[in-house]
Design a protein around this nucleic acid. Structure first.
Length: 289
DNA sequence: GATCCGTGGGC
DNA sequence: TGCCCAAGGAT
């Protein structure tokens, strides 16, 4: 299975800037945060702008956190921008401005969990570490476990599987990115392209006749009318303005007042919005808390 | 462990 | 047309 996946990757890998030979660990870290729950096509232009503007962690750390939120644009989940700014600050304070190379150091940074720590250690520093993202989990669920989808949350069995499949340190990072790419391009969630899959002949799910998922139905999250939508509307107004925005202008962004106030309070509590005297609001100029 | 947290494209 | 999904993390 390894040889088939690795040769497929060598022939089919997308050319992405965070995979280029001249990439930096910082560029890899920024890409991993941006790619959390956000498709590659939307990340690319923003990534270029960030790396042009803030080529090193210290460059971002020197900015107001609100600038990170503004430059985040419409990637979604803007808390990621805030945490990336906090991570840059921590990198300057704890690591002399250099992105740390080990999983244990990386996972201590804000906004970096198991996946991102493993991915940065692996892709930026060549470490041997299981990288369990949604793509890898789906590929292993099908190819090895024989199920259409992985469990809702990563399990010990999945980790053991990923560990067992991990090749030597020389190959581990390429293996990780290759399986991810296979999941992204071929072994997709909805309509897998089994006809062009390099491991279709050994895929347990395929060999079992591609049985449908027998787990509980995966529930989609509601959107219209939610606090999340309201927060998005409010923050969009603030991103558009470099000047403080009067509250009555925010009121036009969401019609329902109770929910609007709750969302605005939550944004302030999260440190994404800074309240000023005189019913004015803006993106944060200083770190909250 | 369940919830919450944005956004937009594809089918 | 909605619904599903996209390199998760924090609480």
């Amino acid at each position: 299975m390894h040889a088939a996946v690795l040769s497929w990757y060598a022939a089919n890998a997308r050319e992405l800037p965070w995979r280029a030979p001249d990439r930096t660990p910082w560029g890899v870290l920024v890409s991993e945060i941006m790619l959390q729950q956000t498709p590659v096509v939307r990340v690319q232009p923003v990534w270029h702008e960030w790396l042009r503007r803030w080529p090193r962690p210290a460059d971002l750390a020197a900015e107001a956190p609100g600038e990170a939120i503004r430059a985040w644009g419409r990637l979604g989940y803007p808390r990621r921008a805030l945490r990336l700014h906090a991570a840059a600050t921590a990198i300057v304070e704890r690591h002399d401005g250099a992105v740390p190379a080990t999983y244990d150091e990386l996972i201590e940074l804000p906004g970096i969990g198991d996946y991102t720590a493993a991915a940065v250690a692996s892709f930026a520093f060549g470490a041997r570490h299981p990288v369990l993202d949604t793509n890898v989990r789906r590929v292993l669920a099908r190819a090895v476990a024989g199920t259409q989808y992985p469990p809702t949350a990563p399990t010990a069995a999945e980790r053991r599987r990923a560990e067992e499949l991990l090749p030597d340190e020389q190959t581990a990072p390429t293996w990780a990115v290759a399986v991810m790419e296979l999941g992204a391009l071929i072994c997709t969630a909805k309509t897998p392209r089994c006809g062009t899959c390099p491991i279709a002949t050994v895929c347990a799910w395929r060999l079992a006749g591609s049985p449908p998922d027998d787990g509980p139905p995966r529930r989609g999250q509601p959107w219209h009318g939610t606090d999340r939508q309201a927060r998005g509307r409010l923050l969009a107004v603030l991103r558009e303005s470099t000047d403080p925005v009067p509250k009555h202008q925010l009121d036009t962004a969401w019609p329902e007042s109770i929910q609007r106030e709750r969302a605005l309070d939550a944004l302030v509590a999260d440190g994404l919005v800074e309240p000023l005297d005189g019913d004015l609001f803006r993106l944060p100029t200083t770190t909250a808390n």
